[in-house]
Amino acid sequence: VMLTVRFHGRRLVACLLLLLAGMGVYHLFTLNSLVDIPDRVLLSPAHLACQHPILDVKNPEIYRFFHNVDPIRCSEEPEWVSVSGSVATITGRTRKEHGDVECSFTELVRDGDDAVRRGLTTTTHDTFVFTNSDFYVVSCTAKNGKTWENTIAGIRRDEDLRSQTSWVKVPVDALKLNFLMLGFDSLSRNTFIRTLPKTYAFLTDTLGGHVMEGYNIVGDGTPQQLIPILTGKTELELPETRRRMGERAQYVNSYPFIWNDFKKNGYITMFAEDQPHIGTFQYRLRGFDASPTDHYMRPFFVATYPEYKNHPKLCLRATPRHKVFFNYVHAFMSEYKNSPKFGFAFHAELSHDDYNLV
């Protein structure tokens, strides 16, 4: 019996040693192969458990999923009203073609996160200044009987709001910088490089931007990524806000958003997101009760989304919807040119379902 045990014991030890040796050889060749293949070079030191590969942006196996799409074609009729910052103007071309034009501007007022209502109406034959709202429904009638209607977005001139922001209020030990965070839903870093090469070159070469190559997702879904970015915590660490929890669910305002910290320190704040039917904080979560930032674009898209079927694809009359979105962001940065500002803009319509549209 003892001889049998010793025999099996020696054979077991030999097998284990052989297995360990085989694993060592396999590991050695695997590391060498990773170094040899350009699109799998290790970024991290070999002793770290989380290894980030450098993937070949021009890999043909990936590029076959990319293709050109037709340009966005909006209405050929020019816009009757143009917007620059906080001022809307009946265009000279419109008056030249149609004669005297009278336009009524009706406020769009936020009524919770999922509805809007109409407020006061102001009539003009020339220019209009945004005062009580960032969004207006415009209805115009020309002397020749022609009519035009659209919903427009700009940055209202709120003097009380402007008086609350100043570089003097920013802490002396702060960086004293303006902040604009711009995101594209469902767009990876490599896809950004593939679809927006000029923008990437401008960010990295001209501006000298830093690319966070080690950044990775921390959950499944848009909220799981943006909540940690904007609060420093995961959803599980924060108050319950899921719609399906009924009365137990709090509004998302209960989260410690970073824009609240900027607001407390003298900054003006903005949050813009399109695609209201799949909003980051509304699709699965309860949304906001009070407006989360000083300027908040959701009411605009809540008002216009049901009307998309009446406009050319991806357009609001003669303007691509993504341009309306980015014009609003640009207007925010321009209107507060000399004030400290924090903006977070998250665009989804072009990238969420088909990155070829970007």
Results as ranks from 00 to 15, higher is better:
38 P>E: 09
56 D>N: 08
326 F>H: 10
321 R>E: 09
58 K>M: 13
239 P>T: 09
75 S>G: 14
344 F>K: 03
109 V>H: 10
191 T>A: 14
138 V>P: 01
189 R>S: 09
109 V>A: 02
38 P>M: 05
163 S>C: 02
101 V>N: 01
223 P>Q: 08
348 A>K: 07
152 I>F: 05
245 M>P: 02
158 D>L: 01
333 M>Q: 10
98 H>R: 04
346 F>E: 02
144 N>R: 12
209 G>Y: 06
129 V>R: 15
270 M>D: 02
277 H>D: 15
66 F>V: 01
269 T>E: 00
324 V>Y: 01
32 N>I: 10
161 L>V: 09
15 C>L: 15
235 E>R: 11
64 R>G: 05
207 L>V: 09
152 I>T: 02
8 H>W: 12
94 T>H: 03
274 D>G: 04
69 V>N: 03
45 P>N: 09
258 I>Y: 02
251 Y>E: 04
180 L>P: 01
218 V>T: 15
269 T>G: 05
79 E>T: 06
357 L>I: 03
47 H>A: 07
110 R>L: 02
308 Y>K: 15
9 G>Q: 09
70 D>R: 03
244 R>Y: 14
163 S>T: 10
191 T>P: 00
139 S>A: 13
41 V>S: 03
195 T>P: 00
291 S>Y: 04
339 S>R: 05
340 P>G: 08
116 V>A: 02
122 T>N: 09
296 Y>K: 09
230 L>D: 00
347 H>C: 06
321 R>D: 12
333 M>I: 15
107 E>P: 03
200 Y>D: 08
263 K>M: 08
111 D>N: 14
342 F>N: 05
99 G>I: 06
323 K>R: 12
66 F>I: 05
27 H>Q: 14
94 T>D: 04
145 G>L: 06
30 T>L: 13
340 P>T: 06
43 L>Y: 11
198 K>Q: 12
45 P>E: 11
219 G>H: 11
11 R>G: 01
17 L>V: 15
63 Y>R: 09
245 M>D: 14
191 T>Q: 12
83 V>K: 04
248 R>K: 14
305 Y>G: 00
143 K>F: 13
250 Q>A: 15
51 Q>G: 08
227 I>S: 00
148 W>N: 02
175 L>T: 02
162 R>A: 12
201 A>V: 13
292 P>T: 00
199 T>E: 08
124 T>I: 03
45 P>I: 04
236 L>R: 15
18 L>E: 02
113 D>A: 08
184 F>L: 14
293 T>W: 08
41 V>D: 07
171 P>M: 12
156 R>H: 06
184 F>K: 04
290 A>M: 09
109 V>D: 10
34 L>H: 10
195 T>R: 09
214 G>N: 15
225 Q>N: 12
325 F>G: 02
289 D>L: 10
197 P>Q: 01
43 L>E: 10
206 T>V: 10
24 G>K: 10
159 E>L: 15
347 H>E: 15
323 K>F: 05
47 H>Q: 12
188 S>N: 13
117 R>M: 11
97 E>R: 12
224 Q>F: 14
265 N>S: 08
246 G>N: 10
260 N>T: 11
1 V>L: 11
52 H>T: 15
150 N>C: 07
161 L>F: 06
282 Q>V: 04
341 K>A: 13
